[in-house]
Nucleic acid binder design. Structure first.
Length: 525
RNA sequence: CGCGGGGUAGAGUAACGGUAGCUCGUCAGGCUCAUAACCUGAAGAUUGCCGGUUCGAUUCCGGCCCCCGCAACCA
């Protein structure tokens, strides 16, 4: 089967040559503040899908990282009196620390938009778009508030005035910027949404982006004057301008998988030859992860819908590259009662704190099953604790303890025959169906519900058959019951592998070694 | 009439033209293998309001009220 052994030598090839590839990514969080719970949710969900795919036998490339250019970072660095590079280095480390803290796969790719390869890729991408005729220069008018000494956007204004300085008239400043001809892609985008009904998940978000694009797209500015804001990737062949941060950041999804290969030599001539081919054939790595996968699956928050599902797709079209495969849109995590999380309200949640107090898998559990998969939902310490106690301590953890106790006390091990017959039972088949359906629609909550249905079922079996009692009167029947419970537990643990990876491994080990957990899997709080 | 989403038991949610399901919480029984955990049962919803279509609507249509996003160059 594996004919091309050459391919398997590639470092990026994570599995056997014949494995089907799957590529998933989060958005890259902007490093203007510490990692927040919303991004943690996005990262955990993407990781869970990635793990599930891996278990399904796919070769998986999972990407995350940090978005590090732009005005806000430049200003933050200045106000702290450090260089932008020092500033972003510090933040990148904080975000990278999420990989172990959230239990993301250790081989998760972490890209920074300041990485040299990414910088070159962004420039190559720019050139590709430019050569295809979708970049032009135009005067760009900005409103400027003298009081704030800042540019203001329309959305910041109240009645056409700066809310902080309502008595002052706004000045209009003109500067020359490069623009991206997004307007040229309205039709193509609508076609994309029409032909791929699962391009955006959930449906409601697909409708939203459809109606947005239907109203017409305006070209947007994709550069800034370097004299005003130098912290960006230089525009190719124009030192006076740097790229607008969005334009650069979105390119990470292809630079992360090696686009364009020809750039490895750093030579400008290679750069232009790469782009002239308009993505017809790029390198093997890109070919593998972007083309053979049918595109990347992108997780993003609902505030990113336009950028990911319209802007970025138009940019890909402009560069002559195939589109993403699916955009999965999360809701926001809110405070109690659906109010916005904000530092001033004091209702923010630090993912590192939660992990410290409850553990990685507890946080994974909560964001995967207790929060709505696509809509806004609230995260409060009370809800977290309640869910933790009910489903992890009393549910899963307690089940493991009681089953393993009976198994160890009566020296019952899981045998192949029992395992197979349980796998064929209708409860398990139904749960598996639900589980797969859930993952198929990126509804991890639904998939998790199927697992907890089995946990309840196992608890009910203990109560109904009372093997702990029966062991005194009919030992062999009791042992059969216990073996069946072990089979249940093994299936449950198997299904939990992508969801609660550490816990699932622990349970599988306990079954294999016929041991009680040394301490409760989830201590009641 | 700017666009979009939503209003289902105390809380969070599911379903969908034909007994409104689930989780947490509450109450009552049961069990003792287990992390005072577990199992069973019960109470609790005129499915925002008003009309219409229909044999029948929470589900389809129209109107109204309320909530929440978005309204693009702020990542």
């Amino acid at each position: 089967m594996a004919k091309k052994t050459r391919k398997t030598e590639k470092a990026w090839q994570t599995g056997p040559e014949w494995q089907k590839p799957f590529y998933i990514t989060t958005t890259l969080p902007y490093v203007n503040s510490d990692p927040h719970i919303g991004f943690a949710m996005e990262a955990i969900r993407a990781d869970t899908v990635a793990r599930a795919k891996k278990l399904d036998g796919f070769g998986v490339f999972s990407n995350t990282g940090t978005d590090e250019h732009g005005m806000k970072i430049y200003q933050n660095a200045q106000s702290r009196g450090v260089s932008p590079q020092e500033y972003v280095d510090e933040y990148a480390a904080k975000f990278k620390a999420l990989i172990p803290a959230l239990g993301l796969m250790p081989d998760t790719n972490f890209i920074r938009t300041t990485d040299p390869h990414h910088v070159r890729a962004a420039q190559a991408f720019w050139k590709a778009v430019e050569q295809n005729g979708y970049i032009y220069k135009k005067n760009y008018k900005v409103k400027y508030c003298v009081g704030c000494e800042l540019e203001k956007t329309e959305s910041e204004l109240v009645d056409g005035k700066c809310p902080l300085h309502p008595l002052q008239e706004l000045e209009t400043i003109e500067e020359e910027n490069y623009f991206f001809k997004a307007s040229a892609f309205q039709k193509q985008l609508l076609e994309l949404y029409e032909t791929k009904p699962d391009f955006v998940i959930p449906d409601s978000r697909l409708n939203e982006i459809k109606s947005f694009v239907r109203k017409g797209l305006e070209d947007f500015s994709i550069s800034r004057l370097a004299s005003k804001m130098p912290w960006g990737i230089p525009v190719p062949d124009d030192d006076t301008q740097v790229m607008y941060v969005w334009f650069d950041a979105l390119v990470n999804y292809i630079s992360a998988v090696g686009w364009p290969d020809e750039l490895s030599g750093d030579q400008p001539s290679e750069l232009s030859s790469a782009v002239s081919r308009k993505g017809e054939l790029i390198d093997q790595k890109f070919q593998h992860w972007w083309i053979e996968t049918g595109g990347v699956v992108q997780y993003c928050g609902k505030d990113n819908l336009r950028q990911q599902a319209a802007m970025w797709q138009a940019m890909l079209m402009a560069a002559g590259l195939p589109n993403s495969r699916t955009i999965v849109v999360d809701g926001f995590i809110t405070g109690d009662g659906g109010v916005k999380m904000s530092k001033s309200l004091g209702n923010t949640v630090d993912p590192f704190e939660i992990v410290k107090e409850y553990g990685t898998d507890a946080l994974r559990y909560f964001v995967l099953r207790e929060l709505h998969p696509f809509e806004d939902s609230p995260f409060t310490p009370e809800k977290f604790k309640e869910a933790y106690n009910a489903h992890l301590a009393n549910g899963l953890g307690n089940l493991v303890s009681r089953v393993m106790k009976m198994a160890v006390a009566n020296d019952v091990k899981l045998d192949e025959k029992t395992a197979q017959s349980i796998e064929k039972s209708s409860e398990i088949i139904m749960a598996m169906k639900e589980y797969e359906k859930g993952f198929g629609g990126y509804n991890i909550q639904q998939a998790s519900n199927a697992v907890w249905t089995l946990i309840s079922k196992a608890d009910a079996i203990v109560q109904e058959r009372e093997p702990f009692k029966k062991i005194k009167t009919d030992a062999s029947a009791a042992k059969r019951d216990i073996a069946e419970l072990l089979a249940y537990l093994k299936i449950i643990a198997g299904l939990l592998l992508p969801i609660l990876p550490q816990t699932a491994e622990t349970i599988l080990d306990l079954i294999k070694e016929n041991k009680m957990p040394e301490r409760p899997l989830f201590v009641r709080k």
